[in-house]
């Protein structure tokens, strides 16, 4: 929408947005539901405005990597389904989905949010490996933040399954009270620079007309665990400083929604 692409930065200069929101205002309602599917070890459904994503955790017992014989592992994968927007087609993940997967993965992994040592069942032989898949149901913009929140909520919701102590076959119908050892709550927030101003929680149209963006993964102690600069324009150190401030504040705002659920 070229005419809107012109309108977005020119409105931003006046601290205005096409949908009438404040620059640093999220769409409502923000909801975090957990335990929404029984087949997953942990699951969540996150809604930010009209953007909806579902995340699910699957766990399996596998041989640890040789360099970390006492640790389990994690893998995060984002799917932008053709169901969620006419922009996406079936097939292998496009760059946007890959970027979301990678940045959310770093946000969780580098924050050491999961105690991988506690996932070890038998040194050098068996440890729990955690896969989190986050799937877009409706992409009305800002799947990035929604995916990060959903992954965290699904991990927090996850419990381990029972397994046969002899054969180590996992009983996927069992439920245990043993939770996944999640120790922190890191969330990735993306701040966009549009018309020289900063905004959060972009709509699809805003995602198509920004100059630069910075994704900041941070935990409750405001320690940054992942950064990703995107967009075609460069940013200054002052920009980074301002964008990180916004991201830290918004991460704690989203964390409240996560803790409230």
């Amino acid at each position: 929408m070229i005419v809107n692409n012109k309108a977005i930065p020119s409105l931003a200069k006046k601290d205005m947005r096409l949908d009438g929101r404040g620059m640093l205002e999220y769409r409502g309602p923000i909801s975090v539901e957990t335990g929404i599917t029984v087949t997953a070890e942990g699951s969540s459904r996150v809604q930010i405005g009209d953007t909806i994503v579902i995340a699910g955790v699957k766990m399996s017992l596998e041989k640890p990597y040789p360099d970390t014989p006492e640790e389990g592992g994690i893998m995060i994968n984002a799917e932008l389904t053709p169901m969620s927007s006419s922009q996406y087609e079936s097939g292998p993940p496009r760059m946007k989905a890959i970027e979301i997967s990678r940045v959310v993965d770093r946000t969780i992994r580098e924050a050491k949010a999961i105690d991988f040592k506690k996932l070890c069942v038998k040194k050098n032989e068996l440890a729990w490996f955690v896969s989190v898949d986050v799937v877009s149901i409706n992409d009305a913009g800002n799947v990035f933040d929604a995916a990060s929140l959903a992954v965290l909520a699904a991990l927090n919701n996850a419990s381990l399954r029972d397994f046969d102590p002899e054969t180590f076959a996992v009983d996927y119908k069992s439920t245990t009270k043993k939770k996944l050892p999640l120790t922190k709550a890191p969330i990735a927030v993306t701040v966009y620079k549009v018309g020289g101003k900063f905004l959060v929680d972009p709509t699809t149209e805003e995602e198509n007309s920004y100059e630069a963006r910075l994704t900041v993964g941070s935990d409750a102690k405001q320690i940054i665990s992942a950064l990703q600069k995107g967009g075609s324009e460069p940013i200054t150190i002052d920009d980074v400083s301002a964008m990180v401030d916004i991201a830290l504040e918004k991460a704690s705002f989203l964390r409240k929604a996560y803790q409230k659920k």
């Binding site: 929408m1 005419v3 809107n4 309108a7 096409l18």
Partner: peptide, 17 residues
């Protein structure tokens, strides 16, 4: 087929759609 050659038909230069 569409036309723009009538009164009230024009290229949009400003505003929002």
């Amino acid at each position: 087929d569409i036309t723009m050659k009538e009164p009230g038909l024009f290229k949009i230069n400003s505003g929002r759609v």
